[in-house]
Design a binder for these strands. Structure first.
Lengths: 212, 212
DNA sequence: ACGTCGATTGCCGTTTACGACAATAGACGG
DNA sequence: CCGTCTATTGTCGTAAACGGCAATCGACGT
């Protein structure tokens, strides 16, 4: 679809902890008459505050931020304002991030290598009630339909495996038997298609379950 | 230090695969009369070409890029033009990236959460012959003075460990004995302060030796 | 020529990891 | 009430990982 009808200019909120990125987005958006006020926030807390006060039409939300991350910010925003329309705009292509964002109620997910034209188009689509995904994200979504995600307990175990604890130690730390720790690890390995705990940790990083 | 003397405006080259980031940097720099032409490249190859044709005063170089990454681009640039002045401008705080950049001849390393004023100041300092590091990067540098880095062979082994191969398999893949593979892994674990192979993989990701 | 370092390999013994087979119990949704 | 899912634990046995001790060999720099 090409340019579509637009009556009144949109009010946009940018949430990103990189000042230069905000400047770039703002300068691009303000060149288009479709966009009026472009508000900015550098962290989750101020983003929520600005949202409450201004109720922007569309919010562009980054994931990696100092303090509360973009996913948590999104969760809180949607909890308070279920009608908020949010487009995730981030560098992360981790399947976990994508999945969490969609489950939390994002209206779209595009990576930061998007160009100005596509972004403007995406924002319009989001505002019009549509959902938007960049090509690479669509691919990730398709790949990971089958891959079930880890339970909270399993993530807890994986964090300990990552730190080099033995099954016995993990059992004691979680106050369960060594055998139980092993059961969780087996399940993790199966879900992540990893042949041993080292590979499981690697897959954890690749999926975004574990973060550096 | 405050504003310093500046006779002729500087010519800057931006290398970053995010169009919005380039737009932000360009808009900020062009607001300052100290900066004249702001050239842009979205990948390593075109960056090198533009550099050869225009010999910019200072180059801002991102690390994570499609195709040739920023470190490789830097290496080639410095090989051909040892006098090039390059400021790494990236999101990565991985110690490996920092170390590689400095060894390859970067004049500075700042993370992308830098604000406009500090960036302008940093660019001036770089052009004046100085070296610039953001605070968090300085801390990383201090931490990792002692931590020796892995040899090429060890990195090769770590990549295989990451994929879940056993010592035996790693030995066969590298055409050495299982005992040798183990020796490498022991060395890796010691250097990365990891208690087992799973923790070593995790540390590999944390340091930037392994990439998602 | 000497010392250092990385790569290589061997043996022996202990510790862990992991797979197969089985089973119990609480939670949650239909 | 029933099926599914998650967490839990057991036993037995095999395979793999790891630590310590020791040594050779070639490359590289002083």
């Amino acid at each position: 679809m090409t340019a579509q009808a637009h009556r009144k200019p949109l009010r946009i909120l940018l949430v990103d902890d990189h000042p230069m990125m905000r400047a770039g987005l703002a300068s691009v958006l303000l060149m288009d008459p479709d966009f009026a006020s472009v508000m900015q926030a550098s962290d989750g807390d101020s983003a929520l505050q600005i949202w409450r006060e201004n109720q922007p039409d569309v919010t562009l939300l980054d994931i990696s931020m100092g303090g509360m991350d973009g996913i948590d910010t999104l969760r809180q925003l949607i909890r308070d304002f279920p009608s908020a329309r949010v487009l995730m705009l981030t560098t992360s292509e981790a399947s976990e991030d994508i999945r969490h964002a969609m489950e939390a109620g994002a209206c779209g997910y595009v990576t930061k290598n998007i160009n100005a034209g596509d972004l403007v188009e995406a924002i319009r689509a989001i505002h019009a009630g549509g959902k938007v995904f960049s090509e690479d994200v669509k691919r990730k979504l398709a790949e990971n339909v089958a891959s079930g995600h880890l339970t909270a307990r399993e993530i807890e175990v994986l964090e300990l495996v990552r730190q080099g604890f033995t099954n016995d130690e993990i059992g004691r730390l979680l106050d369960v038997s060594e055998r139980t720790a092993r059961a969780h690890i087996s399940s993790i390995k199966e879900k992540l298609h990893a042949s041993d705990r080292a590979a499981a940790v690697a897959r954890g990083f690749e999926c975004g379950i574990l973060k550096a």
